[in-house]
Design a binder for these strands. Structure first.
Lengths: 340, 340
DNA sequence: CATTTTTGCGCAAACGTTTGCACAATTTCA
DNA sequence: TGAAATTGTGCAAACGTTTGCGCAAAAATG
């Protein structure tokens, strides 16, 4: 049997309440007594029982982490594990625990989330994606359950806490980087636009064009289908057209990698014929040939900040819903710059 | 305030203990009463309080997941997230929760693990790696704390529960696949051999050679350094030697990808001059040019099995330490086969 | 029909904390 | 020097379950 608060109390010659208060550094215990108690704790290797503490203080010190419902390919994106690692590392420090919830469909996720919240298993959820009309996010909102989004909120913007990059600005910078290299015929390849980050990146791309007096060519701005085959077809079409772009902003390294492949097949040289900038700065960007210029979104830090906000709101329930913007940075490599 | 067991008891006109026993389908409650209770639970949307239940039954229904202490690059391997997803999905089903623990060094991990086990935050740990002389694993073993390894145990083999692929067999199959293609000069590129999977794969490689009457060439069997630059240097050396191998078994897709790059630089055609087989069957294997033949180790399933074993041992403390072998399969692609 | 066995349920004591309140001891103030 | 304010500590009731034990009522037995 593990050592309990009573054991410590007995050894220190005080009552359990005094021990409890010492743990929380309560001001009404004298420094002298605290020292005595601390020594006893030390000696016995005391660690407060997590369950008992949670039951008494009516919380769980547990944060749910919701992965997007998706196909396996999505999870190859190192973004998710990095975000989880960020969250975990912060939780580990703060004596919180975290639990991943995953499922193949929104419904599966929802059912797990419902029992978790009802049974008090978690104090709140960090949702690792942001999507329009998502039933999970809608449920959390409607129930008034605490949650923070990684990604930009789609609705109820002022009532939801979210951690995001400034994806509009990031895409703008990516695009302007290409404009500075002299490109005018710049395309954008995005994914499902109901995902907020993809929509934002597209918006930033368009903004950059407009601000630099470049007309927007609707053929250049593509929302690619999910299936790889269809993606390849669409890209091939774009690159084979008479009015082929000379530069492309791509919403994701993996997609950019595929793009590079197609370019090679079509004998288009990168960055000479086609310059590329993409997002995430994952390992794949460094391994690709030529190496990909990519925007690093600091996924680990997104996780840290999300956990920090979460815990802050758990412990101070009447805080306002704030948003946090985590900085990004452009990492220039061969795919966009002849000088390198 | 959430609905408690007392509310249900009152509505059903029974005592709290009856409700509790109904939840666990205790045989000494009549079917009639159970039905009455179940209806009350349904009506109120009752979900037992996780903390209270855990406190009373002296467990935590929580599993710690230990990531290897490492540099960021390691986590780009989709293996980890897939294993976590497997664990989570099983936990979600069984009303368990899981918490990821991560750190930069073994010491950091150890300190978190110590407080977690002392405070009863977790019932056991699933360790996502297996390594010789690892202080985390040693600590868990010495304390007699429940843990399961994903990977093969290094010591105390009969006392530790582990879930693994048969990496020896897998590497053997990989090597034999190359031998069948007519190769005799086959090399092996591994990583840190204190990691069990790397050592096993090397053993399997050597076994295959021996069994097929091929002499083992020590120059062909390399334990590559961690730094990418040094890796490249070593590989270049191997490929530039007079006695260049014609086929290579590589312990990891990411490394194989780098190998492909070097081959291209050296104007070695794959699979004509060099055939390659690697491990993990990650996205990168499918994206590489040429596509990589790779052994799929079923990381998601490894996670599922690990969670299943863990829960089994939590609920039946006097079970023996068993090992589970999860099947792998070879996925043949362009990098090893001319026919494709 | 009386006795024993079985069945079905409730009582109440845990589980290990937290925290409002009471209260003695000490200090401050007039 | 006595009253009031402050300080430091302990008591005991929560928190919402689980579970050993006891005890009626019902069923089985002789």
């Amino acid at each position: 049997m593990a050592v309990t608060i009573k054991d410590v109390a007995q050894l220190a010659g005080v009552s359990p309440s005094t021990v409890s208060r010492t743990c929380k550094d309560h001001p009404s215990i004298s420094e002298e007594t605290k020292e005595k108690v601390r020594q006893a704790m030390q000696k016995l290797g005391y660690e407060p029982n997590f369950q008992a503490s949670n039951l008494a203080s009516q919380n769980s010190r547990t944060i749910g982490i919701v992965l997007p419902p998706s196909a396996r390919e999505t999870y190859e994106n190192s973004f998710y594990l990095e975000a989880i690692r960020g969250i975990s590392s912060f939780c580990n420090q703060k004596q919180y625990i975290n639990t991943v919830v995953t499922g193949n469909t929104e419904e599966e996720l929802l059912s797990v989330i419902k029992t978790m919240s009802r049974s008090g298993q978690v104090d709140g959820f960090i949702v690792l994606y942001s999507k329009q009309d998502d039933i999970v996010i809608n449920h959390l909102y409607n129930e008034g359950f605490l949650y923070v989004l990684i990604g930009k909120a789609y609705q109820n913007i002022n009532q939801t806490i979210y951690i995001d990059n400034d994806n509009i600005l990031a895409a703008q910078e990516a695009t302007e980087h290409l404009i500075k290299q002299g490109h005018k015929k710049i395309a954008y390849l995005g994914g499902d636009n109901s995902l907020m980050f993809s929509a934002d990146r597209r918006a930033g791309y368009q903004l950059a064009l407009t601000m630099n007096g470049i007309a927007i060519n609707p053929n250049y701005c593509q929302e690619l289908p999910f299936k790889k085959k269809d993606q390849i077809k669409a890209i091939n079409q774009l690159l084979s057209s008479d009015d082929r772009p000379t530069a492309i902003v791509v919403c994701d390294d993996i997609l950019a990698f595929t793009l590079e492949d197609i370019c090679e097949e079509l004998k288009l040289s990168i960055p000479k014929d086609i310059a590329i900038v993409s997002f995430n700065n994952s390992l794949i960007a460094k391994l690709a040939t030529p190496k990909l210029t990519s925007i690093d979104v600091n996924s680990y830090q997104l996780g840290i900040e999300a956990a920090s906000q979460m815990i802050n709101h758990i412990e101070n329930p009447n805080l306002m819903a704030t948003k946090i913007i985590v900085p990004h940075h452009l990492v220039v490599r061969e795919s966009s710059s002849l000088d390198r």
